[in-house]
Simulated scan of single mutants.
Amino acid sequence: MHTQSLVRPSAPVSVSTLRVLGLAALLGSPAMLIEVYRHGLQRVANEDTDPLGALLYGLFSVGWLCAMIGLRHLHAAGYGKVGRALMNVVVVTVTLAIGQSVMDLLRVPTSHPLYMVTDLAWPLSMVLTFAVSVAALFARVLPLWGRLVLVFCGISLPINILVMVLTGDMIGGASFAWHTFLGWAGLGLVLLLARPGSEQFPAQA
Rank of each mutant, 00 (worst) to 15 (best):
L162K: 00
A131P: 07
A174S: 15
S198W: 01
G172L: 02
L192A: 07
V134S: 05
W122M: 13
E199T: 13
E199L: 15
L137M: 14
V141R: 15
L191N: 04
L144G: 14
L166T: 05
F138D: 11
M126S: 14
V127N: 05
L128Q: 11
T167L: 13
S198T: 02
A131K: 02
C153V: 13
L137K: 01
H179A: 10
V132N: 08
L162I: 14
A174H: 08
A121L: 07
G154E: 11
A177R: 00
V134K: 03
G154N: 08
M126Q: 12
W184F: 15
T129I: 05
T180Q: 08
V165G: 07
V141T: 14
S125N: 09
V190T: 10
L150N: 10
I161C: 03
L150S: 10
A177I: 03
R195V: 10
G146R: 03
M164F: 13
S198E: 14
S175E: 08
F152Y: 15
A121M: 07
L189V: 15
V165H: 08
F201I: 13
W122V: 14
S156E: 10
L192Q: 04
N160R: 01
L189R: 00
F181L: 11
F181S: 07
A194K: 02
V149P: 11
L157R: 00
G146E: 10
P158W: 01
V151E: 11
L142M: 06
L120R: 04
A131I: 01
L120F: 14
V151W: 07
I161K: 06
L189N: 01
V127D: 12
A135W: 06
P202Y: 01
W184A: 06
L182Y: 05
W145Y: 13
L192H: 02
S156G: 09
L142S: 07
H179N: 04
T180C: 12
R140M: 12
I161Y: 11
P158Q: 02
W184D: 11
